[in-house]
Amino acid sequence: MNIGEFNVRNGRLLGSIATRTIDLPRLGLRPVESDNDRAPIYEIVALNVGNRWVQLGALWEAVAKHTTGEVFYQGSIDDPSLPEPLPIALFGNDEDGYRVAWRRPQRRDDFGPAVRSARRDYAASEQGGFGDSTAGNDGALMNDQPVDDEVPF
Rank of each mutant, 00 (worst) to 15 (best):
N2W: 08
G4D: 02
E5N: 12
F6G: 03
V8D: 09
V8S: 14
R12L: 14
G15I: 01
S16Q: 07
A18R: 12
T21M: 11
I22Y: 08
R26E: 09
R30Y: 08
N36W: 06
R38W: 11
P40F: 05
Y42S: 02
N48D: 15
V49W: 06
V49A: 15
G50H: 13
V54L: 08
V54F: 10
Q55P: 12
Q55Y: 02
G57L: 01
A58F: 04
L59E: 00
K65D: 14
E70P: 02
E70M: 14
F72D: 05
F72W: 06
Y73A: 01
Q74P: 02
Q74G: 12
I77C: 02
D78Y: 04
P80I: 09
P83H: 11
E84H: 03
P85T: 00
A89F: 01
N93V: 10
N93Q: 03
R99N: 15
R99F: 11
A101S: 11
R103E: 14
R103V: 07
R104Y: 14
Q106F: 10
D109W: 06
F111S: 13
F111D: 10
G112D: 07
S117T: 06
A118Q: 15
R119C: 07
R120N: 09
Q127A: 09
G129I: 09
F130T: 04
F130Q: 05
D132Q: 15
S133P: 00
A135I: 04
N137P: 02
D138L: 09
G139I: 04
A140C: 05
Q145G: 03
E150L: 13
P152I: 05
F153W: 10
